[in-house]
């Protein structure tokens, strides 16, 4: 019984990370119709930045502030000076650009930090454990889940309760219309792209102490994030929440029940969704 609870909590922590990465991905896709293959690379950059800051300052909390800020700037620059430039060349070129960026970030990270996995150490409360009704559980995983749940709630508030949120939602549905209303849509695109990158960077910074920091970490989460947005429906935030939860749990219990086939479970889910509901659980038929 307690084993199940542990794996459930593990699943929640991973779901939190997945949500932080996939929410930006799905919103940007919904608005700009561009799938950013470099999005998971922002996650990886967040982790490496966090590691570098932690090494120099020894301040873990600082990393959680600085890494997302750095990614915010990088995201804005990528959108403004690269993505927007190839937009006229069409859809395929946008994808190619983000794919090329992912490749460069991957190789750049190897060049600067090498191939070996590295660790970020946390201390104090975060490194401790708590007793939860009979089980001993690391605080850090709970922290990840709490952080992502908090941010998720914050996002929901911004998107459903503020004027900016209304504009973003409208831009997801019909960017031409929003443009006609005199709102600077490219500016909104840049903003969402940058905030998405920052969230991904924060996810990377928090994932670092848990999963380690290594050049393959972008690829590992990219595929899971893709599955999340396919299953949840591309462009749907609610879908991202639900699918992150499902994939997180599948991942966690998959490792427990079928250690060799945990990945297969996730693919089976995706194949099932593709066959039965190709637009995803919360997606709209095009």
């Amino acid at each position: 019984m307690s084993d199940l609870a542990v794996f459930f909590l593990h699943g929640l922590a991973y779901a939190g990370l997945l949500f932080l990465v996939s929410s930006g991905l799905t919103l940007v896709f919904g608005m700009m119709n561009v799938l950013n293959f470099a999005h998971a690379s922002f996650y990886m950059l967040g982790a490496y930045f966090a590691m570098a800051i932690a090494v120099y300052t020894g301040q873990f909390w600082l990393t959680l502030a600085v890494a997302p800020l750095a990614l915010l700037v990088i995201g804005a620059v990528v959108e403004r000076f690269l993505l927007r430039k190839v937009h006229v060349l069409g859809h395929v070129h946008e994808l190619l650009l983000t794919f090329g960026l992912a490749y460069i970030i991957q190789e750049g990270v190897k060049w600067i930090w090498g191939n070996n996995p590295q660790a970020i150490n946390v201390s104090g409360l975060l490194a401790s454990t708590v007793h939860l009704g009979g089980i001993v559980y690391p605080v850090y995983r709970l922290f990840i889940f709490a952080l992502s749940a908090l941010l998720g709630l914050g996002m929901a508030l911004v998107i459903y309760k503020t004027r900016i949120g209304i504009i973003v939602r409208a831009a997801v549905n019909d960017s031409a219309m929003v443009n006609a209303l005199g709102i600077n849509v490219p500016y909104v695109f840049m903003g969402v792209f940058a905030v998405g990158a920052a969230l991904s960077g924060l996810a990377g910074a928090t994932a670092g102490p848990l999963l380690g920091v290594f050049p393959g970490m972008a690829g590992a989460i990219l595929v899971d994030a893709f599955v999340v947005i396919v299953v949840g429906g591309m462009g749907s935030l609610g879908g991202a929440v639900l699918a992150s939860f499902i994939i997180g749990q599948l991942q966690s219990f998959g490792v427990l029940l079928f250690p060799d086939f945990s990945l297969a479970l996730i693919y089976m889910l995706m194949a099932l969704v593709l066959v039965l509901k190709p637009e995803g659980l919360f997606g709209e038929k095009s």
């Binding site: 896709f29 119709n33 561009v34 799938l35 293959f37 859809h91 994808l95 690829g219 990219l222 595929v223 893709f226 599955v227 947005i229 396919v230 591309m234 990945l263 297969a264 693919y267 995706m270 194949a271 593709l274 066959v275 190709p278």
Partner: peptide, 24 residues
């Protein structure tokens, strides 16, 4: 057969996912 159902970006995304599956 599975990829027939999707076009455009979802097609690109899924080809990558299947490649990852074969690697795994």
């Amino acid at each position: 057969f599975l990829l027939l159902r999707v076009k455009g970006t979802p097609f690109s995304l899924l080809t990558l996912a299947f490649n990852a599956l074969f690697l795994a």
